[in-house]
Design a protein around this nucleic acid. Structure first.
Lengths: 338, 338
DNA sequence: TTGAAAGCGCTAACAG
DNA sequence: CTGTTAGCGCTTTCAA
């Protein structure tokens, strides 16, 4: 119970060698005789020794841990992303820990403080609320890859989706299938800086304009937190206010799920009365009724690219910044007509 | 760019004080004169100094960080749990990081190694695949609270749900609303040790027996990973095989979502042909069509209790182990009849 | 192939 | 109120 933690020193004394030899054994360095190695490992096992990662990190700087910072744990998109990354890193014998940055600016800054980030060998940062100034505060020596749709300083490595083409694809599909009054739920026409909501509203707007349709401002329904509940409430509001629509492009699948519920509340059938397209292709989207037509951002490739950029920086801290843009494709399911 | 990281020493020299004074200022200790404090803070700001948490941890043992270990990031239940915990800890000026333990036994053991756990002031462990031996390997000095439904050694602090009563409540509700052939999707009658799936199958079985119904083994449909896709596939299988049912108790809401899709695939209407009840009351469950009747485990209270147990151990490492069992309640929505 | 010395950056304990 | 000393547990460096 109260017995003191076993240290490398204890192992060394017990094994009759120096701490350096123990360290060499545990780090698989080649300069240890086979018998010594065997003996040390036995003692390690017997005493139940485990390395103190904090001490190792303080001395060597390496941790074997990558941090992923996401806005919220409870948005499905980030849960799926975290799973994919965790699995991919495990193959490299690295370890993922996830932090939540959202909810408040204070907490976001706390999560992004150098003090916290320093604890990782590298960081995948999927923060939405940052501005350039915040990003510029981050110490440049730490390998960072930005995941996400806001614009960032050029010196950062970054992976993001083709937002505008994706949104355009979604909207064009709605038009092709006969929709004419298409709202963009969660879109924004203007914002202090470009972000997911403005990019996707732009794609929507482009597609409408190309088809000779008017991207009326009242068809743009902005959201705050992109939760299912908020999306459902807002679409209910605008329908109650008399907005007439026969199509909805929801900027995320999560928003689309709320839209599905809200449309149902209003007695509108999907896809018969109103067609619906989302963006993200969440796991759950295939299992809704009707299945959700959506834009697939090819997350596995985005994850692979993110880790490639991270590894590049790990190997060469001066690696030239790279911007990777993922492909998007349309996945057609029951929420749009045949 | 390549400039060396600023240390406390740099601040001390620049401010013309000792490192201890800098440390005292940064830790808000009361023994620093107001002018000295002011001056030190200015220098800290000017140099852009941030504390090295690794060094602090090595020396003081405290990290301000709590770890949450969950089986998978992409199960909605854990995402919601993590969000709640993260928010609650922020109020205590503590920080949550989340690790995924699932996917393989090797990775589970790696996440649970003392080396990793040591990095936290305390750990909330929501691992499902552990057995007693694994748990016994964990160093007893670390504050741990177990969240979850498997049985554990008495010496652990633990918070879990009233599984059997919850499952019973769900099943009784189905019976009350007229269902007679009720399957338990994701339940298990036997397993190497008690776990969520057996507890909930027991509640189902008890309710059926009380009502004079036969808990036939073919009504128990076990699952492996409790994913939506798996649940959908399995219910499709058993329906195709000719199983006749008018009610489904799904052991989690995630499983219920799969069931909803599978029933729809088979041309069965919910709740008209088959009634459905889940367990967990996920955020999304209110927004399905139809809304999902489910068991609410009162997660906010469970989270509060978990953190209370953790704080107790933080304050007194010999605090007597406590087992807390949360209450459950039935939330009635459209997936059961009126 | 092995070991001794030094020190990563910080804070506990105590002295002034 | 401020400073000095020592050392957390490990790994780097260099000597044997």
């Amino acid at each position: 119970m109260g017995r003191r933690t076993v240290t490398m020193n204890d192992v060394a004394r017990e094994a009759g060698v120096s701490v350096m030899t123990v360290s060499n054994v545990l780090n698989d360095r080649s300069n240890v005789g086979p018998e010594t190695r065997q003996h040390v490992l036995e003692v390690v096992d017997r005493l139940g020794y485990e390395v103190n990662l904090t001490a190792r990190r303080l001395r060597s700087g390496r941790t074997g841990t990558v941090g992923l910072i996401v806005p919220r744990f409870d948005l499905h998109y980030y849960g799926e992303l975290a799973s994919l990354i965790s699995d991919a890193l495990a193959a490299d014998r690295m370890h993922l820990v996830v932090e939540q940055s959202g909810a408040s600016r204070e907490r976001e800054l706390s999560a992004l403080s150098l003090a916290r980030l320093q604890q990782y060998d590298g960081v995948l940062l999927s923060a939405v609320g940052l501005d350039m100034a915040d990003l510029d505060r981050i110490h440049p020596d730490l390998p960072i890859v930005l995941l996400g749709e806001q614009d960032v300083p050029d010196r950062y490595h970054r992976v993001h989706m083709r937002n505008v083409p994706g949104a355009r694809l979604a909207t064009e599909h709605l038009i092709t299938r006969g929709a004419r009054r298409i709202a963009v739920l969660g879109g924004k026409l203007t914002a202090p800086r470009q972000e997911m909501a403005t990019h996707r509203a732009n794609g929507w707007s482009d597609a409408l304009a190309d088809a000779g349709l008017d991207p009326r401002p009242d068809l743009v329904i902005p959201l705050q937190d992109y939760s299912i509940a908020e999306a459902r409430a807002r679409i209910t509001d605008v329908l109650a206010a008399g907005l007439e629509i026969d199509g909805v492009f929801a900027v995320t699948d999560e928003v689309a799920i709320g839209a599905l519920a809200g449309l149902h509340d209003a007695g509108l059938r999907v896809p018969d009365d109103v067609q619906l397209v989302g963006f993200d292709n969440l796991d759950i989207s295939a299992h809704l009724t009707p299945g959700l037509t959506t834009i697939d951002p090819d997350r596995p490739t985005m994850v692979a690219e993110s880790l490639r950029l991270l590894r590049r920086q790990l190997e060469d801290k001066n690696a030239a910044p790279e911007h990777v843009v993922g492909t998007v494709s349309l996945v057609i399911r029951g929420s749009t007509r045949n």
